[in-house]
Nucleic acid binder design. Structure first.
Lengths: 159, 159
DNA sequence: CATTTAAGTTGTACCATACAACTACCTGCT
DNA sequence: AGCAGGTAGTTGTATGGTACAACTTAAATG
């Protein structure tokens, strides 16, 4: 990584303001991520973060298999197996055997699972909406566009 | 919070575009948080997320106490105690008794701890810098300002 | 058919965490 | 001074999420 460390001794191309903006973005995004984690925990006291994440995945990808979840979230199949079993025990997901391949189990949200997810989404949305309540529409648009631009184009995390 | 649920039946003030922007922001921020979590895990294989967070806190607040960490991150004191003990065992933090109060232990990064943190920060910064490399300075400024505005004013998470 | 490969489960171990009980210490009050 | 009550931190114990390894069942492949 030969990014020649622009912060120390920035002679000519010293766009310190640019650096400062990048650092602010980094700090604030990280702070958000940290807070989101604990907020998620508080939001679903009974559901572990992973359970909830898996549930969300099932909403977006109904009929997916345990191995998809394991691959997508870099979890061991045993972990997924137990999490899915717990979710089934809780009545939030259903499993049925794939007639074409008796090894795989097709996973789906139950209505209770969908309801739990919806309720959580509602709380989360209310939180965001409250936070952004007094923003001008123009700023919302730009902020959304920036986030899309920032996220859109892999490289930072999994996926 | 009487936000009278604007999504269902939005008769006159139905600013759907505004809603869409909020939803995009929510989705993208959440996606970022999710990816950041796994990225952090990949970045510090040897350091747990919490250990790393505590280490970072010690960098910003040298000389703080275990109870500060527990309060700030909503962790039990026993958890902090064990984590700090592990960090000390790893040579990343040092403890010394407060002469004014023999109950408390003043915590500080060791040079090894600071180095580990710096290295991690470097990787992280490189990641952000790469992501934002082709952004115009004006956009960076605005994005940073939006994030500050979004985060700045409690209510979403702890703190 | 036999071997290999794949999907899931179960046994085991480890780590982070919470709660509760405990130690050591400080503070305030009488 | 001395005791009551609170505080900082540790340790015992239990739980939950996770990985790894061994296993089961079934599909694919030779």
């Amino acid at each position: 990584m030969n990014t020649d460390t622009p912060e120390s001794a920035t002679p000519h191309r010293g766009d310190g303001r640019r650096e400062a903006a990048v650092e602010t973005i980094q700090r604030e995004m990280t702070a958000f991520a940290r807070r989101a984690r604990s907020a998620a925990a508080r939001m679903h006291p009974e559901l572990s973060l992973v359970s909830f994440t898996l549930l969300g995945h099932l909403e977006e990808h109904p009929g997916c298999r345990a191995r998809d979840l394991a691959a997508h979230y870099a979890l061991d199949k045993s972990t997924v197996s137990r999490q899915v079993a717990a979710l089934e025990r809780a009545g939030l997901v259903g499993r049925r055997a794939d007639p074409a391949d008796h090894r795989v189990q097709v996973l789906e949200l139950t209505s209770a699972g969908a309801a739990a997810l919806d309720q959580a989404a509602e709380i989360r949305t209310a939180m965001f909406r409250g936070r952004l309540a007094d923003w001008a529409g123009e700023d919302l648009d730009r902020f959304a566009a920036y986030l899309l631009r920032y996220n859109g184009r892999g490289g930072y995390g999994e996926h």
